[in-house]
């Protein structure tokens, strides 16, 4: 029963090797889906290409449905998997800053690595910017430390907040995803095509 490293089946050296292999798969799929080009990524914000939305949502749904069935079959202990901690203030502010960075820079950190891998110099520059940004965050950390830890809610789950069962939440999300896939495809059809 998983997660294998947490229950001591695999030691930490394996964990690093597995991470490398998973990373290769991650990078391969991102690049193959076209995430190495900023103009394709930015399409989601202008309606000419919704590939980001499709890949992102399908991946999240696949993983969450998979996790729940794994749990049902007793293949994985969901109480051991890492659940991101929620800090309301910094999560929202950070997300807004990232969104702005996304629309200006055209990448996110993971996709920029893919872009660099196939020789995109704008990706390399973006990546340089990411390092500067992280440094600036460290440098300004004392000023925002208070804010950084504000609104701490711990590892809370979204369906608990909404007060419905996990299965129901995922089901609603699936319906929402299918409708959104259909609507975005219609929008994309109407939008002026962009070549890249």
């Amino acid at each position: 029963m998983g997660p294998l490293t947490d229950i001591g089946v695999l030691n930490s050296n394996w964990e690093l090797l597995i991470a490398l292999v998973l990373g290769i798969g991650f990078g391969y799929v991102l690049e193959a889906a076209g995430f190495s080009t900023s103009r394709k990524l930015a399409g989601v914000f202008y309606g000419y290409d919704f590939v980001v939305w499709r890949v992102f949502f399908t991946a999240a749904l696949t993983a969450m449905v998979g996790l729940m069935y794994f749990s049902y079959l007793d293949w994985i202990d969901l109480s051991l998997i890492y659940v991101n901690k929620t800090f309301l203030g910094s999560a929202i502010a950070g997300g807004v800053i990232m969104g702005l960075g996304f629309i200006i820079g055209g990448f996110c950190p993971g996709t920029s690595v893919c872009a660099v891998a196939i020789g995109k110099l704008d990706g390399l520059i973006f990546l340089g910017g990411v390092f500067i940004g992280i440094f600036l965050f460290g440098a300004t950390f004392p000023l925002i430390e208070e804010f950084y830890t504000s609104g701490a809610l711990g590892s809370i789950l979204v369906y608990d907040v909404l007060g419905i069962s996990a299965g129901m939440f995922v089901f609603i999300l699936i319906l929402f995803a299918i409708v959104s896939f259909y609507l975005t495809a219609r929008i994309q059809r109407k939008a002026k095509p962009v070549r890249y």
Partner: peptide, 29 residues
């Protein structure tokens, strides 16, 4: 222009919905 609703997309959507229904009806595990 490619058609939006292709057969395989209907199939995929159906699969996802079935998986989702499964999560709801397989008794609250």
């Amino acid at each position: 222009k490619p058609r939006i609703i292709k057969k395989r997309y209907i199939f995929m959507a159906a699969l996802m919905i079935i998986a989702g229904v499964g999560l709801v009806v397989i008794p609250d595990f």
